[in-house]
Amino acid sequence: MSAAQPDTGYNFAYLDEGTKRMIRRAILKAIAIPGYQVPFASREMPMPYGWGTGGVQVTAAILGKDDVLKVIDQGSDDTTNAVSIRAFFARTADVAVTTRTREATVIQTRHRIPEAPLHEGQVLVYQVPIPEPLRYLEPRETETRQLHALAEYGLMHVKLYEDIARHGHIATTYAYPVEVAGRYVMDPSPTPKFDNPKMDDCPALQLFGAGREKRIYAVPPHTRVKSLDFEDHPFRVQTFDRPCALCGAEGVYLDEVLLDDAGGRMFVCSDTDHCEERRADGHVGTGGVAETVAHA
């Protein structure tokens, strides 16, 4: 994968053991109270806030030497953020890394859930910028704490209703609020709402880390995750009117790629691993080229 050599001089997975214990205790409480945001003493990491310091700390706390790590950024394995975090753990923990969703035991993600179904025994670690779903509606943490304690989520329904009043439909397309196990309303991180249905009854454990905001929360496997909606305006995901131009996949989330200055564009799978595997299996889209060499 990367040419990074394991670094000596750091503890396994970079964090000291005291920090790991603190994060681990927070993770255990987060799992016991699905959707509730557990405060934790987030550390400074050797990367800026906004680059996934929360996710990195959660990954560092759970990672063992036999784990296989995959890191994605907007579905892609090969963007700067994904490559850097993968190299970080390859260097500080000497763990095996992969781009294959199926082979990974721990998947750290920035804003996508892989297209390939997750399975039991996998852990999906989300990088979260703003963990509080009510933050833009109520700026005071003391107040949002109370609202969660009382399960008072009327504000959020008003916000979604205002969407309908203004646009005729719920116009929230990412970070779409969900209700976890019938109790806490949770921000699924800025994943497209296309991915929300994958969180419901997911066989994998889902952990969320927000480094700057110092919060950890979790959704255990096989837990009910319901996107908020109204009876007359049920939750709906985006649809795409064409398949992936490279692999021909339908029913997947697509990225728009500009090709030239004359308005040329193509729509391709956001999940690069899914797209590559399909092309390796011989699927070709309208703008794709048939694979001549099968992937190993």
Partner: peptide, 20 residues
């Protein structure tokens, strides 16, 4: 091996709590 033994115990507890 304090580092890896602790991690192993934690993962067992985490998996047990995540899958009662």
């Amino acid at each position: 091996d304090p580092v890896h033994d602790s991690q192993g115990v934690f993962r067992a507890v985490m998996d047990a709590l995540a899958r009662p």
